[in-house]
């Protein structure tokens, strides 16, 4: 399983700098926002955590559709389906590798973008923490979409359409935890713990459903 994790990491680094593209997209999305809403620093610092979260959500979806499609196209998926190793475990490891290669760089890049948005230290820290905890959930949900659309030649857009509504809770609790850390009356811990719960929940449901979808679309 470690071999699979390392292989997927290597692939995402070599195949056209997958991680870098995600971070670039994230930066571009965040950088475009001030042009839309105006350069008012107070406003930007207020909506900053939300913008970072939306940017990260969209960037996480990039490349998700290739998660299983690339394996299917070169025949590797057939070999993986035949192994004694439970498919759920294979899917889980692939998700973790995908997150490490494309989600983690977003988390690391988020403080820099937080500075652009004129957020204070607490807000930046809180946003980074919530992204760290919440983005894996997006990958796990995305794995279901990717597995469902694995046989479709142009599944990319469809994956995003299928995944985004399901990812709304992650966005809500991520953003509200980030805001709770800054604004006094609201407590930080409840939304943050719910965010962790959602991630753990999808860490189980996502690979299970994705494995079932991969099995039923093999032929």
């Amino acid at each position: 399983m470690i071999a699979l994790f390392l292989r997927d990491l290597k692939l995402s680094v070599r195949a056209g700098g997958g991680a870098l593209i995600g971070v670039l997209f994230f930066m571009t999305v965040v950088a475009v926002i001030p042009f839309g809403v105006g350069p008012d620093l107070n406003l930007l610092s207020r909506i900053g955590p939300a913008i970072l979260w939306i940017g990260a959500l969209l960037a996480c979806l990039l490349g998700l559709d290739r998660l299983f499609q690339a394996e299917r196209e070169d025949g590797s998926l057939d070999v993986m389906l035949m192994q004694e190793t439970p498919l759920v475990l294979t899917v889980l490891v692939k998700c973790l590798a995908h997150w490490t290669a494309s989600g983690l760089p977003l988390v690391i890049a988020s403080p820099l973008l937080g500075l652009f948005m004129n957020m204070n230290e607490v807000a930046i820290g809180a946003t980074m923490l919530t992204l760290l905890v919440g983005t894996p959930a997006i990958t796990f949900i995305g794995a279901v979409g990717a597995a469902v659309a694995v046989a479709l030649p142009r599944g990319g857009l469809l994956v995003s359409i299928l995944v985004l509504p399901l990812a709304i809770p992650v966005l809500i609790f991520g953003v509200s935890a980030a805001y709770a850390a800054v604004e006094d009356p609201a407590p930080f811990l409840p939304p943050f713990l719910i965010l962790i719960a959602i991630t753990l929940f999808f860490a189980v449901i996502g690979p299970l459903a994705a494995a079932a979808a991969l099995r039923s679309s093999s032929d």
Binding site: V144, G145, V148, L166, A209, A213, S216, S217
Partner: peptide, 13 residues
């Protein structure tokens, strides 16, 4: 296949 795959998605939803 479409039925099976959408069934999985329906249940996840």
């Amino acid at each position: 296949k479409a039925a099976k795959v959408s069934a999985i998605l329906i249940l996840v939803g």
